[in-house]
Each structure stands twice: as structure tokens, then as C-alpha cells.
Amino acid sequence: MTEIAFLFAEITTEAGYSGIGFGYSKRAGGPGMYAHAKEIADELIGEDPSDIGKIWDKLVWAGASMGRTGLTTQAIAAFDIALWDLKAKRAGLPLAKLLGAHRDAVRCYNTSGGYLSMPLEQVLENVTTSVARGIGGIKIKVGQPDVKEDLRRVEAVRHHLGDTFPLMVDANQQWDRATALRVGRALERFDLTWIEEPVDCYDAEGHARLAATLDTPIATGEMLTSIDEHWNLIRQDASDFVQPDAPRVGGITPFLRIMALADHRKLSLAPHFAMEIHLHLAAAYPGITWLEHFEWLEPLFNERLELRDGHMTVPDRPGLGFSLSEQARAWTSDRVTVTEPRV
């Protein structure tokens, strides 16, 4: 992976309030998402920006013949997130406070220092740097062709961190059911916080079997793009940690519904990527939460999040608390302004 495509939406009301939201695509899909967003953008004109649920439904049905999951919902996410940012700014509140925060800071783990392509020495160096910065947990990738190499790397990181520091592993759907069970049992001795995406992301039954068999918690959900797909996992007890991604599921509106379903089953929440959005949502979740730390997006914004004592602090700035940087605008390859409904 060499680049990520971002779709930004900036919404301004007649009264002068504005909000910003974004969606993204890793590898292919960005141009298609942008094309769909351009086609439906005029559906927002004339609507009351407070009626976010109504607007979300309207945008979904505008492209319903293309489906209500995948690219179509991901294109909606930027609009929906911008509307929530706008609503919180109008109230003069951080989004977490508008939603009803349960905490002012969320435990945060780093995931960008332990990729399979990195030699173990580099991974250990990255772990040291992350812990020194105040990170609260470490996640590394597993799924090597040789399982023994996975175990060697996990053992080295566990020894480096000590017995009690939170450590997670992420297989990114690399294993079949039998391999996931065998490796999962071998990983039990490392007292992991979770094993993430051990099998195919749509294999709810496979995840459920692992969750019922292993002592180590199972985490999954980052690749799913609808409420229904998440509900399929939740209702089958397929994971201990639910991992929705607001830009992928269509924005904050569907994310909140997934949160409610997860809370009903008393599951833990660990949103995927986009910490600038998910910090507020995790802070508003009643149960156990973790936030995934990715520094990749920092050049896009003027503001920074504060990391302290293993937690990311919810900013006191209204809305999401971010504004687009000049660098983000310089990287912009195309833009469109919509001010009138389509005739």
C-alpha cells in the first residue's frame, strides 16, 4: 500500500455554521466513492442540518439501486460526519459531549509499528518509541507463512513489554478456521488483549467458534460496511471486541446504532482507524473501549490529539475539533461545489 484516497465534505449552512467530514479508501475505490458522492450531494440542499437521520436515509435511498452497503454507504460517510461535526459546533460542544460522554480520555494502542514487512529488531524499536510517547497498548501483525515465525515475534514483543502491558495481534483474515484455532491456542500463553480478524471478516460462524473456544478475546469488524453486517457478528457472539469504522459503515449515524447493539450484548468497543473521529465515539460508549492510534492522518489537520498515560484525551474544541491543513488542500486533486438542487 502506497497511498490512501480521502473524500472530504465541507458543509456550510445559510446561518454560517460549517462542518467537515471524511471518508477514505485504501488501495482501489477512491475515485468511485468520489463519483457517487458528487452525484448525490445535491440531495442535501434545502434540508435542515439538524435532521441528520432523515438526511442519511435520503442519501442511502438516492443510490439504493446500487445497494445499501459498500461504496454507496462509504460515500455517504463524509456528509454524515460533517453534519455531526456541524451540529456539535452549533451547540458549542465537543462531539463526545454532545453524544453524552462516559469518559474524557480513551485507552489508546499503537498499530503502525508492527507490520509483517518490518524486521523484528525494527518492531522492538518501534515498541520502545511508542511506550515512551505514552501509548497504552501495542498491536503487531501476525499471519506469516511460517507460524513459528509469528510465535517468535510475539514472544519477543511480550518479553520486551513485560507480562502485564496490553498486547494485541492482528491476523488480517490470513488464517482458515483450523489454523486460527491451532495458532490461537499457541498464543494463549502470551496473555493477549485480543486476536484480531483471525479468519475471513464475513465468517461469523468461524469467529464465533474461536470466541467460544479460546480464552483470548476475539476482535473483528473493521472491514464491514453496514449495520446489518455488524449485527450478523454481534448476534452470533462472534467477537468480544466490536471494531466498526465510521467512514466504512456510512458515518456516525450508523456507527451509533452499532454501538447500541454492542452495548446491548455487553461487548467491548475498539473502533478501527480514524482516531480523529473515533475518539469522540469511544468516549461516548458505556462499556470497555480502546482507540487505535494512527499518526498517518496528522498532516491533513492543523490540530493534534493529546496522548497521556496510555490514553488519548478528548479535545475541548467544538465538534470533532479539527480543521483542514494547507497540506491537505495542496494534495487535493479534484473538488466540486454544490449550491443548488438538481433540476
Rank of each mutant, 00 (worst) to 15 (best):
L124P: 04
G143F: 01
H102L: 05
A186N: 04
R182Y: 12
T73Y: 02
K148I: 08
K87Y: 06
R107I: 01
E121S: 15
Y115C: 01
P94Y: 12
Q174G: 04
R182E: 13
L95W: 06
V131Q: 10
V154N: 04
I52D: 02
A78C: 07
R68Q: 13
Q122S: 15
I52F: 02
A132M: 08
W61P: 03
G134V: 04
T111W: 02
A41K: 02
L83T: 01
V169H: 05
R177E: 13
R90M: 15
G114E: 00
L181I: 09
R182I: 00
L95T: 05
D146N: 14
D163P: 10
L120S: 00
D80W: 08
C108T: 15
T128H: 14
W61A: 05
T164P: 00
P94V: 08
L86F: 10
I52N: 03
A77I: 04
A132D: 12
N126K: 09
L181V: 06
L167M: 03
G113N: 11
V106W: 12
A186V: 00
W61Q: 13
R185M: 10
V60G: 12
A171Y: 11
L151W: 13
A91G: 09
H102C: 09
P119Q: 09
A156W: 13
E155P: 02
D150T: 07
N110S: 14
D163L: 14
S112E: 15
A96T: 07
E43R: 15
T179D: 11
A180H: 09
S117Y: 01
M168I: 02
I55K: 04
L116S: 00
L124Q: 10
A41H: 11
R158N: 05
K139M: 01
V169L: 02
D48E: 14
I140S: 00
G46E: 12
R90C: 14
D176Q: 03
K87V: 01
L44Q: 10
A132S: 14
K139T: 00
V142R: 00
G63R: 12
V154Y: 06
L99N: 08
A91K: 13
D51K: 14
I81F: 10
A78Y: 05
G136M: 05
D170T: 02
H102A: 02
W175C: 05
P145R: 06
W175Q: 06
N110K: 09
E47I: 01
A96Q: 08
P145W: 09
D176E: 04
D163Y: 08
I55N: 06
I140V: 13
T72F: 02
V131L: 06
L151N: 12
V60R: 11
T129P: 00
E43K: 13
K87W: 03
S65E: 12
A78E: 03
T69F: 03
T72C: 03
Q74Y: 01
D150P: 03
F79I: 04
Y109Q: 06
A101I: 03
V183Q: 13
E149L: 15
I55F: 03
